[in-house]
């Protein structure tokens, strides 16, 4: 009897392998091989379409990048964008989620309305805002109204500071509802009895937010931070479309755009691979840092 049982176990374990093998093969070929290949290629001087065999140059691609103003500008542009988009996204989406849960009616409607921009594709989002940012468009009209500066052109798509702000605004608009919905799911998991107990003990709303909601929401906050930050670090569509439509490239030349241009337009595969690896390491580092500093321990209610 025992023998037969282990026979079934064996058969089942074979089926388990059979079911996971196709995906495993896929990930090996389309995720692991390319990242290993990128690390390897980054050590060579290599051009697409070139008949010359690639020459091994060790870490010279990295050395070149670390001395290149263009690359440092990309690092700067990426971090300016990430900080500018990620912090407001985190704070505002948490605030909106808490506020939505505090109203009696229309919670569902508000969630869906905030989420609506996330449904549109990135290029559509960028195109809509490009129209708004037109020198004669609504962006100037609104800002002039707010600042009381009639007739001023704020150069949303031309000025180096404004164009960065514009990309951040497009991104913020597109993703705010997405993170609101995630926070609402996290908040909804906190039992209401905790708040009632706190109320009986005489806590006000402010105290119950900082003493109950915030600590219990920590895992969600960490998760949203990591996700939002990684998303921001690899932003591409908005910047690409803005540059294609005539905005200056330097202020918004984020790393991904630089990888694309170096590799595909200039054919320098080795150098663009080195950039890819640097981006990969930056993303790994920030994920590690965030999980470490915020100690994403599981909470139980």
């Amino acid at each position: 009897m025992k023998k037969k049982y282990s026979g079934i176990e064996k058969k089942l374990s074979r089926w388990g392998w059979t079911f996971v093998t196709p995906a495993l093969l896929f990930f090996s070929l389309f995720s692991f091989y390319p990242i290993v290949n990128a690390a390897y290629t980054s050590l060579f001087r290599k051009k697409i379409l070139s008949l010359k065999p690639p020459t091994f140059i060790g870490l010279k691609n990295y050395a070149y990048l670390l001395r290149s103003d263009d690359f440092w500008n990309s690092i700067r542009a990426t971090f300016a964008f990430t900080l500018g988009a990620f912090l407001p996204l985190l704070v505002v989406s948490l605030l909106l989620a808490v506020l939505i849960l505090s109203v009696k009616r229309g919670q569902k409607f508000l969630q869906l309305a905030y989420y609506a921009p996330a449904v549109l594709s990135s290029v559509v989002a960028a195109v809509i805002w490009m129209s708004i940012f037109d020198p004669r468009g609504l962006g100037n009209q609104w800002l002039n109204f707010l600042l009381n500066t009639p007739g001023t052109d704020h150069k949303w798509l031309a000025d180096s500071f404004m164009v960065q702000l514009s990309t951040i605004l497009v991104y913020f608009w597109k993703y705010i509802g997405y993170f609101v919905v995630i926070f609402i799911a996290g908040l909804a998991a906190i039992p209401g009895s905790l708040y009632e107990a706190a109320l009986i003990d005489g806590a006000d709303r402010w105290q119950s937010f900082w003493r109950i909601t915030f600590p219990l929401l920590k895992p969600t906050v960490v998760l949203v931070s990591v996700m939002a930050m990684l998303q921001c670090l690899k932003t591409f569509s908005t910047q690409y479309l803005f540059v294609q439509s005539g905005s200056p490239q330097a202020p918004i030349n984020v790393i991904t755009l630089n990888i694309y241009n170096t590799g595909i337009r200039d054919h320098m595969i080795g150098r663009s691979s080195a950039m890819s690896i640097i981006l990969f390491i930056i993303m790994l580092f920030f994920t590690w840092l965030q999980f470490k500093t915020t100690k994403a321990d599981e909470v139980s209610y």
Binding site: L29, S31, I35, I259, G263, I264
Partner: peptide
């Protein structure tokens, strides 16, 4: 191993993928 691929951004592997 499969979860680890979430950490590999598409943007970092697009050039090798293109060569494949």
């Amino acid at each position: 191993a499969i979860m680890a691929t979430m950490m590999i951004p598409f943007e970092a592997i697009m050039i090798p993928l293109y060569l494949v």
